[in-house]
Amino acid sequence: MHLTVLTLTISMPGCRSLKEKRQRMGGLHERFGRNPAVAVCESGDHDRLDLSEWTFVVTGNERRNVEAIVSEIEDKIQRTVDGRLIDATRETL
């Protein structure tokens, strides 16, 4: 069993409310939480309007499948979220 923890910090300049922050993040729980190999949560910066931190835990039987899912998450967030990815940390356990 392989497990990787991906933590992303996203900057959202000009965000004026928590409601706008949620809208700009675009439903990450719904998008990535459907995959049974992925657990997702907003893990930090809950009350900050200009930052959002999300953690994804990805598990699987093969390391390359886990890495492929992690890379797909990171790429999709960079393309679809109305913000700028400023930090990405991967920890393989």
Rank of each mutant, 00 (worst) to 15 (best):
V38W: 08
R31F: 08
T7N: 12
E74P: 07
R63M: 07
T55S: 15
L93C: 11
D45Y: 09
R64D: 14
R48L: 15
G14D: 01
C41E: 13
L18I: 09
K21W: 01
C41W: 11
I86P: 01
L28T: 03
E91D: 12
C15E: 03
V40T: 10
V66C: 06
G44Q: 08
L85S: 02
I86A: 05
D45N: 13
G14T: 00
D87W: 00
I77M: 12
R90S: 03
L28D: 03
S11F: 11
R31E: 13
H29V: 09
D47L: 14
G14S: 03
L18T: 02
A37D: 15
R63N: 05
D87F: 05
V40Y: 05
T59M: 13
T4Y: 07
R84D: 11
S43F: 07
S17W: 05
H29Q: 14
T92D: 13
V81Y: 02
V57M: 13
G44I: 01
E74M: 08
V70Y: 00
E30T: 10
P13L: 08
E67K: 09
S71P: 01
I73E: 07
L51Q: 11
I73W: 08
L18V: 04
R24L: 06
N65Y: 11
E42A: 05
V57Q: 11
I73K: 10
T80D: 03
H46F: 15
G27R: 04
L49V: 00
A88Q: 02
P13V: 03
F32P: 04
G26Y: 00
P36M: 12
E67Q: 14
S43Q: 09
E74I: 04
E30D: 15
R22N: 07
E91Q: 13
R79E: 15
V58D: 05
K76S: 15
V70N: 01
D45E: 15
G14N: 01
A37R: 15
K19D: 08
S11E: 14
D82G: 01
E20P: 01
S52A: 15
V40I: 13
L8G: 02
A68H: 11
V66P: 09
C15M: 07
A37V: 02
D87R: 15
S11C: 04
E30H: 15
R48Y: 10
M25N: 11
K19C: 03
L51P: 02
N35E: 05
R64P: 03
R79Q: 14
F56K: 11
R31D: 08
L3T: 12
D75K: 14
C15P: 01
R48N: 05
I10G: 01
P36S: 04
G44P: 02
D50G: 02
G44V: 05
R31V: 13
G26T: 04
I73M: 05
H46K: 12
E42H: 13
T7A: 11
G33A: 11
P13K: 04
L18M: 12
F56H: 06
R34E: 14
L8K: 10
S11M: 10
H2W: 14
H2C: 10
M25G: 03
L93A: 10
L3V: 15
M12K: 00
T55D: 00
L8C: 08
L18A: 07
K21R: 08
G14I: 00
L3P: 01
I10V: 14
K19Q: 11
V40F: 02
D75I: 03
V58Y: 05
V81W: 02
R90V: 07
E67S: 11
I86R: 06
